[in-house]
């Protein structure tokens, strides 16, 4: 994870049409601006960044389903439950599951565990929109490859 760059997922371990699993490692405290602020003397992974992590896992799942033709963007966050603190250097397992494939949107659930222990879960809605720029589409494809996803060539 590079929190300050919003790079939340380190590696995608499996994906099919309905589920994506991924791994990530929370960075250490030393030199990390997020933990400098959250919180001084009590470094904790911010809950909003855990939600962001589940949203990104859902986004990669939808990109896979959409053959990278459209960009999923977070639209709503429901039933977010942050069950336990996440400390620096924790290893996280992330799972995104498709709940509903709608017209121009999808609903997913996200879940994070750490060493088998429930950390958090959420229900998310994402809109699927045309990529706003070819540069972003190319960057997303490159990032997907680096995470371990198979990316089809653009049509």
């Amino acid at each position: 994870m590079r929190l300050e760059y919003f790079e939340m997922i380190d590696r995608i371990t499996a994906v099919d049409d309905n589920t994506l699993t991924a791994e990530c490692k929370v960075p250490g405290v030393e030199g990390n601006p997020v933990f400098a602020g959250h919180m001084p003397g009590f470094p904790l992974m911010p809950g909003v960044l855990l939600i962001e992590t589940m949203a990104q896992a859902s986004g990669w799942l939808l990109l896979h389903r959409l053959n990278f033709t459209r960009m999923p963007l977070l639209a709503s966050v429901k039933e977010a439950k942050l069950r336990s603190f996440v400390l620096p250097e924790a290893s996280l397992q992330v799972e995104a599951t498709l709940v509903h494939d709608g017209s121009g949107y999808a609903v997913t659930t996200g879940r994070i565990t750490s060493n088998g222990k429930k950390v958090c879960e959420v229900e998310l809605t994402l809109r699927a929109l045309p990529f706003p720029s070819p540069d972003l589409a190319a960057m997303v494809r490159d990032r997907a490859r680096s995470l371990g996803l198979t990316v089809p060539e653009p049509a």
């Binding site: 709503s76 017209s103 949107y105 809605t125």
Partner: peptide, 11 residues
């Protein structure tokens, strides 16, 4: 956004 929720509920 509410319309998205309504469409999901109808679906």
């Amino acid at each position: 956004l509410d319309f998205l929720d309504i469409v999901f509920a109808i679906d």
